[in-house]
């Protein structure tokens, strides 16, 4: 073996050892378990059952429902999170003295665990909203924000946006700050309006950051867990049960069907991988065109 490779191995050993034990091995194991009927109580880790878990998945209405619910959530999140973050970034960047104050405020919820944030919002939804509805007559607030699945979708959305917009905002602020000032100055002198400058100059220059922003929003919202766990616990019934929570309860809360839950986890993995790869390819190509 080459000397340089031997030194490389030594340097990579600690990271690779822990990585392969706690990421690679469980990941590959997951594929194998998904082909078995292993349940949590079985010390022998179950028997090989071929693709029967996957066949069962096709007819699993609960899982389908959770996939649909998650997809709806992802679509709302990707669009709203990016639009609001970009809007805030553009506005804040146009301020001079108060720039840092607003940045600090909007990023703040991002520091908070969504478990704690979720419990605080549970207080807002179940106590403050009904109070406001009673006292100042804001009737739109007088709904069952947690108990009615139609509304609890929006409460999960509000909590998630509240907690995550600041992160993308920081990324967009950094992108805006990287635009050379002379470019904007030149356009202004040539008589371009603010909207024209934003559309024709700023937009193409931050295209790369938008790709990153959409990627982050996609991959994090597919994996949403804490927000739903804290706010609705997936209920009422299973109405707001996102995929990650569905897998979690299949494996650790209900029947401990680890094999079947692993099949669901494989589906989630393939789904996230496929969708984010398509997104990156499409948006990278668009970036070049702009």
């Amino acid at each position: 073996m080459k000397n340089s490779n031997r030194i490389l191995l030594i340097f990579c050993l600690p990271a690779f050892l822990l990585y392969s034990t706690f990421v690679l091995y469980p990941a590959l194991g997951g594929f194998w378990y998904s082909l078995t009927n292993w349940n949590g109580l079985d010390p022998t880790y179950g028997d090989y059952v071929g693709f029967s878990n996957y066949k069962e998945l096709l007819g699993d209405e609960n899982f389908k429902q959770s996939l649909l619910f998650t997809s709806k959530y992802v679509i709302y999140m990707v669009i709203l999170q990016n639009i609001i973050a970009l809007l805030l970034a553009v506005i804040i960047e146009s301020f001079e003295k108060t720039k840092n104050v607003f940045r600090t405020i909007f990023f703040f919820p991002n520091m908070i665990s969504m478990i704690v944030g979720g419990f605080i919002w549970l207080f807002i939804f179940t106590r403050v909203f009904p109070y406001l509805a009673d006292t100042i007559g804001l009737m739109i607030l007088d709904e069952s924000w947690i108990g009615n699945p139609q509304y609890s979708f929006y409460s999960i959305l509000i909590l998630s946006l509240w907690g995550s917009v600041g992160y993308l905002m920081i990324i967009y602020i950094a992108a805006l700050q990287n635009i050379p000032k002379q470019l904007l100055e030149a356009a202004r002198i040539d008589g371009a309006s603010k909207l024209q400058i934003n559309w024709h100059i700023v937009r193409p220059l931050i295209a790369n950051s938008i790709t990153i922003g959409v990627f982050i929003a996609l991959s994090t919202s597919f994996k949403v867990f804490d927000q739903v766990y804290a706010l609705t616990g997936g209920g009422p019934g299973r109405a707001t049960q996102v995929v990650s929570l569905n897998i979690f309860s299949e494996a650790f809360a209900m029947q401990s069907r680890f094999g079947y839950a692993s099949a669901k986890a494989v589906v989630l993995f393939v789904l996230i991988l496929g969708i984010t790869l398509i997104q990156l390819l499409v948006m990278k190509r668009k970036e070049v065109e702009m």
């Binding site: 990271a15 990585y19 034990t21 706690f22 990421v23 690679l24 091995y25 469980p26 990941a27 590959l28 194991g29 997951g30 378990y33 880790y45 991959s219 597919f222 994996k223 867990f225 995929v243 990650s244 897998i247 979690f248 494996a251 650790f252 680890f258 839950a261 692993s262 986890a265 494989v266 989630l268 993995f269 996230i272 991988l273 984010t276």
Partner: peptide
């Protein structure tokens, strides 16, 4: 190998992880 694993969602390794730990 390292970079590829950044695409694996945590929920896809959690069952295997509980077992290996």
């Amino acid at each position: 190998l390292f970079v590829m694993s950044m695409l694996i969602p945590f929920h896809s390794i959690m069952i295997g992880l509980v077992r290996v730990t």
